[in-house]
Nucleic acid binder design. Structure first.
Lengths: 184, 184
DNA sequence: TCGTAAATCTTAACGTTGTCAAGTTATACT
DNA sequence: AGTATAACTTGACAACGTTAAGATTTACGA
């Protein structure tokens, strides 16, 4: 995970890991089935860190603020660990999670934490049959903004904001402002 | 681009391209500076196709429907060409675009077409100073939903829809329903 | 028409990677 | 004490990106 952030994805190689550990080229094969297994393990680590980011930002907040905190944590994690986030976005760890002891904990952290946060947010206290659409909608909103920021396709500066924090907060407020719970 | 869709990204190799063309291993270096140059070229091709998808779906529509068409085209392209979409999402083609003759055309197609579509959509006819936030918000919404669908993290079935089309239409309608232009 | 310059291709080689096979050491348990 | 299991080593293979040196084709002006 250190390699990933210092040298990028293309440097995350089995031989490099072995070299950095001061061990021989084929040694990692005693710990990982193949390279994909290494990547999966890194992604599982990332999932925990991801959950920590979101928990930290959302802690102590309530209602819409809780949701905003999750979004800020989501985006901050992605920007602090771009390569890891990209890797996690395109890696299927579902079959690996089934073989992990603390699978439920891993699952409730990370992405599903956002879904859980949505489930208890005032965004859904509206009673419409369309309300279940708000879960993928809000999830996709955060996920999409995160991706656009990570890939540099949008920037706070291009929209008249000095720092990331204020930009994200403005976006979240604008998003929540549009939600049916706040426009009855 | 055919290789990409039939065998995935890891199969998109200079040597494979040479082999499939019936030419020798180093021949591609007469046409591409390096592998990254190959990828960039493929992404440029993809950008045109991307624009065609969105144009096709949005053609003949107006107002909110135009925006919905763009979204459907966006998502349909990504699902029809997953590997290509993923590659395009994580490739910076900005410096390549500057050296291409029809740069403006390429730019207005693809991602920026969505932004342009937003600029003329009723979503922004509200006069608020926050309106400029709606561009990244709507862009991120479509982009995020697309990613979640491509990576299989959400499915139409999981939300009670039979096919993709109806699911996307419902999402877009729900999204537009929440926009300030429609909740004055 | 001929010759030259550019574009395109070929072969050969280098270093790096993922992966496997065989054998070695160390650790732990009966 | 002996053995099984885990962790490691060396060595090798094919495939990849990339470069160098040279051959071939093509186009085009003298």
């Amino acid at each position: 995970m250190t390699i990933l952030e210092e040298s990028g994805v293309e440097a995350l190689t089995l031989r490099r890991v072995a070299r950095d550990t001061g061990v021989s080229q084929a040694a990692p094969y005693s710990h990982f089935r193949d390279k994909n297994d290494l990547i999966t393990a890194v992604c599982l680590e990332g999932t925990k860190l991801f959950g920590e980011y979101m928990s930290r930002e959302a802690a102590g907040r309530e209602g819409p603020d809780y949701l905003a905190g999750l979004a800020v944590g989501h985006i901050r994690f992605a920007l602090d660990h771009r390569a890891l986030f990209r890797l996690m976005s395109t890696t299927d760890i579902s079959e690996a999670v089934e073989n992990v002891a603390d699978a439920p904990r891993v699952l409730t952290e990370g992405y599903l934490m956002l879904a859980n946060g949505l489930a208890v947010s005032p965004l859904l206290h509206f009673g419409s049959e369309q309300q279940q659409l708000d879960i993928p909608l809000a999830w996709g909103q955060v996920y999409g903004i995160t991706n656009l920021l990570v890939e540099g396709r949008i920037t706070p500066q291009a929209h008249g904001f000095d720092d990331l924090e204020s930009f994200v907060v403005a976006l979240v407020n604008r998003f929540l402002q549009n939600s049916p719970a706040n426009t009855p």
